[in-house]
Nucleic acid binder design. Structure first.
Lengths: 149, 149
DNA sequence: CTCAGTGCAAAGGATTTGCATGCCG
DNA sequence: CGGCATGCAAATCCTTTGCACTGAG
């Protein structure tokens, strides 16, 4: 993939300003956390993150994930395994869905045809408005066994 | 809804034979658990279940939910709140999706147009086969705020 | 400087498990 | 009867929190 480094600094810039707007600091620890997630390119659990960068402290990572989720920078994914997964939020990663392995708990990103995507979105919007429900985003996951399991 | 009682005994019958086939007993406790879920008609957490029928013991409910999930009778839903939700599995309840309230954690069942449903399924099947992923089922949830929140 | 952020260790809380007893088949 | 199922209480383990210290702005 060309321009990887540029892409990463773009992400840092974007996140930095977004945090600043909410009176949060973009500290070294947060920057490292974001780098780990960006470089993995797929949802990670806390152990994944701490293993990838052992300088990060558990409690700080959890706290920062929380801050970043609340700032709309990171997305929390509950897949049903032991640990919650986290990935960069859609404004940074683009809208997508997941393949969830029910054996190993792994998660992989996938993209739908935009045609199908629009239809789904339209359907959901209709249904929501009928229930007085205010939609924020949808999640569409395929559960099964990955190639390795 | 006409024939509610019949519907419930149908469910018990179906579950009973399914459990028998897997060398599990359909005990009083399990029957009560299933009744609670069937009568609620929407996904419930463990506290919901125990509140609905205080004779049920926490640990037994958890153990039985586990058995029933493994037997394909109950489905586990991880919505991201404190508790996991459970509902009767799709063979009993029909294929459907969820409206998930990110304020109160409540979950409501919804149904999609069968046309949209087929398109989604087709898309996912295509994507999965390209990754060597074996699909089992998909989940499609709309996250937002319910009418009460 | 000041206060948000950090790291350690300890607490919290949903879920699981050990063990003696009860009940289904 | 024999073994799966139950219920209580204790253990487990992911996640959160208290507190004193550090570093960003």
């Amino acid at each position: 993939m060309p321009g990887d480094t540029d892409h990463l600094s773009e992400i840092h810039l974007e996140i930095g300003s977004r945090l600043a707007r909410q009176d949060h600091r973009y500290t070294t620890g947060r920057r490292h956390l974001v780098s780990v997630l960006a470089q993995a390119g797929q949802p990670m659990t806390l152990p994944d993150i701490v293993t990838a960068d052992p300088d990060l402290a558990q409690s700080s990572v959890y706290r920062n994930l929380d801050v970043l989720v609340r700032s709309g920078v990171i997305r929390r994914i509950s897949a049903g395994g032991d640990h919650t997964h986290f990935e960069l939020a859609e404004p940074l990663l683009g809208h997508h869905h997941h393949l969830i392995c029910i054996s190993c708990g792994g998660i992989e990103d996938i993209h739908l045809d935009s045609e199908v995507e629009m239809l789904v979105d339209q359907s959901l919007t209709d249904i929501a408005s009928r229930s007085g429900f205010t939609p924020i985003h949808h999640s569409l996951d395929l559960h099964g066994h990955c190639a390795d399991c």
